[in-house]
Design a binder for these strands. Structure first.
Length: 193
DNA sequence: GCAATGATACAG
DNA sequence: TGTATCATTGCT
């Protein structure tokens, strides 16, 4: 599982759009308390870049909710929204520059039976959305600020040493009230097929 | 097309 | 302290 190695801080500290593109096709892994493993290949990501980006949660500066984004690259920023859903982001750039990549979908690889238990859906809808994915993987506030680079952390991303798959760029999803030019920035990357 | 469901942010 | 909003999902 860990054969190709966990991605480290130097990977995540690259410019956000670079990290976002390179994350496509990488293997997101979570080790459960019982020792079993959940994993999936990242299929869709979205970038939120700094205080200038008016769609980014850090647009109004640091708050209790978004403080993880101001931390080191490679840490998780997890937040609750719509009263129901958890969202999982990976912090990018240098410390103090609040930017992150939202994981919006993965293709399940390991632990599919666990994902089926946690979600009541057909296999197609197991993890093909930002909150579907966190529910399938059991990710919530407890993973906020988790350092994905730490060899001891139960959540990390594995470099499979594969070429970045073909993908399309689109405007970001669900940010309708964001003013231009940020509304139209093609910062949603989605693998084709 | 819209309800669910509650934390967050900001106005007053 | 009140309330509009929300980086969504699932059902009608």
């Amino acid at each position: 599982m860990d054969r190709f190695g966990r991605l480290g801080h130097s990977f995540y500290s690259q410019p956000t759009l670079i990290v976002a593109e390179l994350l496509l096709g990488k293997q997101l892994v979570k080790v459960e308390r019982d020792g079993s493993t959940l994993s999936g290949l990242i299929t869709e990501v979205e970038s939120y870049i700094g205080t200038e980006d008016l769609a980014c949660h850090a647009r109004n500066g640091r708050t209790e909710r978004n403080q993880a984004m101001f931390g080191k690259a490679g840490k998780a920023y997890v937040y609750f929204t719509y009263g129901i859903h958890w969202m999982f982001n990976i912090v990018t750039e240098s410390e103090g520059m609040p930017s992150a990549v939202l994981v919006r979908g993965v293709t399940p690889i390991d632990g599919i039976s666990t994902m089926r238990q946690r979600r009541q859906s057909n296999d197609k809808d197991l993890s093909n959305g930002p909150a579907k994915f966190t529910q399938a993987f059991g990710i919530d506030l407890r993973w906020n600020n988790t350092n994905l680079c730490d060899p001891k952390s139960d959540l990390y991303i594995n470099d499979l040493d594969q070429k970045t798959p073909m993908f399309v760029k689109s405007p970001r999803i669900g940010i309708d009230r964001t003013p231009e030019p940020w509304l139209s920035k093609p910062w949603n990357f989605k693998v084709i097929g």
